[in-house]
Design a protein around this nucleic acid. Structure first.
Lengths: 347, 347
DNA sequence: CTGTTAGCGCTTTCAG
DNA sequence: CTGAAAGCGCTAACAG
């Protein structure tokens, strides 16, 4: 259990070279012969060498991580931001500095792109982003940034075709499954609808898939998808139309966080409590509806942790040449009911 | 955003003293005059000094943390152990070494005490424990250990009267509330029973309180408590008796992890699926019952994190003079259903 | 391509 | 009670 620490010095002695060479070899730095590199790496792990993160972060120069967040109508980004901030604070000890910027306008491609380049100009070694809804729009920009050797990670959503280095997001499949199972408890085989923002975005596609898979398994009765594109007016209209066209609907799954308007409209129409609702996340409006009983449960996607983790993983790729399996970290969705609401809402 | 780092050296210069003095003053070490200490502390935070954890862990001497776990019949301790191991591995970089010991016999006061002293003899600076069921039994031993300046933390259960420094445990109140809400969904106001290990242990008391509070709120019909004292024979007998005496019971809340025997017996008696069950945690037996549908939901108490966190917090008290608010860290209980089971069970 | 050297910020002897 | 000085393990200039 108690074996003495093997240092870079030990390795260098064994090979009769300097510590600098060992350092270069071990960290994929330029000025070493491939031959040497091979020998170093070999004897290093033969000797059981483990790099000391503390020592290296003490001596290396500063790492800069930028965070660029697309604001959404719903103010959903707030917790992501606190999470990223927390990560940056925790990493300050490791010679990491950073900056967080949120767009003024939601889904503004141009503004978002500008913030991105600003970060590049400031010399960031890594950038964490929450991309705008139309994900593919920015693929080329991300690729250009990547070409400079800058690590890019996404949170919340993803840009799968952009060559970003990593994605942190909710496990949408399981979130959808959970919603289906709960709605099944609540309404059995009565008709249930899906309401979501952009049905083609990476994450929403996953939640819908998961929901349908499980609804199928339980022989539930799905009454269609309503896609509001994060637009309150559309949401208002869709809620109205849904009630008119399908008054038999007894359950709804809100696949995206931004569903407060839809909910409000249902309430106006006198359907509060009559239709069972499983929502996503905990924006203030949803919390109110849960307390009133309009919303029965919500699938919490832990935005704080998403923000914290992208930044942390980017750091680890930069400093510890860490790799995420499959480049994606899926977070576990959590069920929030009124009985455990207190643990998820500050105060 | 970018203020230069204030070091111990800067503080020493400002006061015209040596860095050694500043160090002593800042870390509550003996050989400094109170006068000096006061001045140092004052100017340090005037200057916005923040200690560098990396630098200090690089130079200080090794910290030893021992982990002593009371094994339980159910093998519940396994995940706690992995969590503690993980923490120890992560902390290795910070010059932390440690050792984990599990008792051979469950709830054997003598053996547990011996392991504790062994850790003390080995020079541990901190000890993490999962105490035996009869918690108060060891109060005096813990006090003696504390008297030597050793930090003691508990996980899973607690020893509130022992003067331990901290406790990491599940939020029992909320866990109980959640169980009640789910059972209410499943059986409404039909009779529901509570089944638990030791009803007087810190955590089980909390789960029962939470359950009753919420059951009351929802006007549920509670049909009594069955206490099996972690003894399979008693559990077997109680299940048999429950069915005989209260064939009207439609729901059960298993407040403690060790409920597999009880469950098996219900199945034998032909009550699988007829009685709705909300269990606690995910021992292998419970997982099987969930897959079969005997158990409808379980409240997961995250043993891995409990193990990981006690060790981590003990380290932080030792190295960063960290303090847990109120000395207790409550973990959020998580609802596990068949739809999200895959995320909680390896493979 | 490889070696030498000067730190990073703090802790810990060892002197005084 | 206080100070001087030698590191902890690694990185980054700068020489060679």
């Amino acid at each position: 259990l108690e074996k003495k620490k093997v240092t870079i010095y030990d390795v260098s002695q064994r090979l009769g070279v300097s510590t600098a060479t060992v350092n270069r070899a071990l960290n994929g730095k330029p000025k070493v012969s491939e031959e040497m590199r091979k020998r170093v790496i070999e004897t290093a792990d033969e000797m059981g060498y483990k790099a000391s993160k503390t020592a290296s972060s003490l001596s290396r120069k500063e790492i800069k991580i930028g965070v660029v967040l697309n604001d959404t109508i719903a103010g959903f980004i707030k917790d992501i931001k606190s999470g990223a901030k927390k990560a940056l604070e925790d990493l300050a000890d490791y010679k990491v500095s950073g900056e967080i910027r949120v767009t003024k306008t939601p889904d503004d491609k141009k503004e978002f792109e500008e913030l991105l380049w600003e970060m590049v100009d400031k010399g960031c070694n890594g950038i964490a982003v929450v991309p705008p809804s139309i994900e593919a729009e920015l693929d080329d920009v991300i690729q250009k940034i990547r070409a400079r050797g800058i690590i890019v990670g996404t949170a919340v959503s993803d840009m799968p075709t952009s060559k970003r280095n990593l994605s942190v997001r909710n496990n949408g499949i399981v979130a959808g499954q959970m919603a289906a199972q709960i709605l099944h408890w609540l309404v059995g085989r009565e008709p249930v609808a899906i309401v979501t923002g952009y049905r083609d975005s990476t994450v929403h596609k996953e939640t819908i898939t998961g929901f349908r898979k499980y609804a199928d398994l339980l022989s539930m009765n799905e009454a269609g998808i309503y896609e509001h594109r994060d637009d309150p007016e559309i949401a208002y209209y869709l809620a109205t139309r849904m009630i008119r066209e399908r008054p038999d609907i007894k359950g709804i799954y809100f696949g995206s966080a931004n569903s407060v308007t839809f909910c409000n409209r249902l309430e106006e129409l006198g359907y509060a409590g009559k239709i069972k609702i499983v929502a996503s996340d905990l924006l203030p409006g949803i919390v109110e509806h849960m307390k009133k009983g309009t919303v029965d449960a919500t699938i919490f996607q832990n935005p704080f942790d998403q923000g914290r983790l992208v930044v942390t993983y980017i750091y680890r790729m930069l400093a510890e040449n860490f790799q995420l399996e499959n480049d994606v970290k899926y977070l576990n969705p959590r069920i929030v009911l009124t009985s455990n609401l207190e643990l998820h809402v500050p105060e």
